[in-house]
């Protein structure tokens, strides 16, 4: 068997704001783990056999790893910009591959059908050409110049606008998207999807946001994002096969799927196969 190269990565394991001395029991790639606040105030994560696991707190969440992370957690420089509202959306569990959850997040063509009248609406279904690349220096997948017509792009949006997006995959189960920010045209809103792989076919999803929006109440921001994600959940639980096929095999990608194609290629190149299968059967 080949070594699971995803073992050395960082994964979200809880909300920093809900960390307490009592702690929570959860799992990472099949191993039961416990997450709590230590005496020194820092996050403490222990593995199945009681060993201490690496831990850090960043972007509203506690992060940990079963292995030996070679790199610090990826950077989201915008998250530290003053004036942003940081939104802990909370966990949603999904019975699907953690990689399928990320792939869905990178997809815009489903907006009119799954997020009807919010992120998309017929007849505005066309996906314009956009740019996709694997940035070798950062070793990340990027999609840029992604544009889509949206009836209600954000809680703060009034009426339909053509929204521009950039997508970034800095780690196999995490994605960061940058989206047109209606109140501040020069900036991007940051919306992330942090996925905790519990098993190859089960994950806890922790969406998180860093927005320029001084108007909307925090609860409305949380509910907007929960609405969107739970609309995706029933799709994710009904895709066949459960594991993400890294070669299309029986699946048929088209031009609108170029981000997905690049993501799968990047996963395959790194041997990031926890939650994947090589060919669709």
């Amino acid at each position: 068997m080949t070594r699971n190269t995803m073992i050395d990565g960082w994964y979200p394991v809880g909300l920093a704001s809900q960390l307490d001395a009592h702690g929570r029991r959860t799992a990472l790639m099949g191993e039961p783990i416990a997450v709590r606040r230590g005496e020194d105030g820092n996050a403490k994560v222990t593995g199945g056999n009681g060993r201490d696991l690496p831990a850090c707190i960043r972007y509203g969440h506690v992060w940990s790893s079963l292995g030996d992370p070679q790199k610090p957690l990826f950077a989201i420089p915008e998250a530290d910009q003053p004036g942003r509202r940081l939104v802990d959306v909370g966990v949603v569990r999904v019975r699907c591959s953690p990689l399928r959850a990320v792939e869905n997040f990178l997809d815009i063509a489903h907006f009119p059908f799954v997020h009807t009248d919010i992120l998309g609406a017929e007849p505005h279904t066309e996906v314009q050409n956009y740019k996709v690349e694997i940035r070798e220096d950062e070793d990340e997948v990027w999609a840029t110049q992604v544009k889509f017509y949206q009836p209600q792009a954000a809680k703060s949006a009034e009426g339909g606008i053509t929204t521009e997006y950039m997508y970034r995959v800095p780690a196999p189960t995490c994605s960061v998207l940058y989206k047109t920010c209606p109140p501040r045209p020069a900036e991007w809103d940051v919306i992330t999807l942090f996925v905790q792989p519990l098993a190859e076919d089960l994950c806890d999803v922790w969406p998180w946001m860093a927005l320029f929006d001084d108007e909307t109440p925090m609860t409305d921001l949380i509910h907007f994002q929960q609405t969107i994600f739970v609309q995706d959940r029933s799709i994710l639980e009904n895709q066949i096969p459960t594991l993400l096929p890294l070669d299309p095999g029986m699946e048929i990608p088209t031009r609108a799927d170029l981000t997905s194609v690049a993501y799968r290629r990047w996963l395959k190149r790194h041997g990031y196969t926890y939650g994947a299968q090589l060919v669709a059967q």
């Binding site: 009904n238 895709q239 066949i240 096969p241 699946e251 048929i252 088209t254 997905s260 669709a280």
Partner: peptide, 12 residues
């Protein structure tokens, strides 16, 4: 019951 595009169940 499987869409050739990305595997979604067509019965939905």
């Amino acid at each position: 019951d499987r869409c050739p595009h990305r595997g979604m169940r067509l019965s939905h």
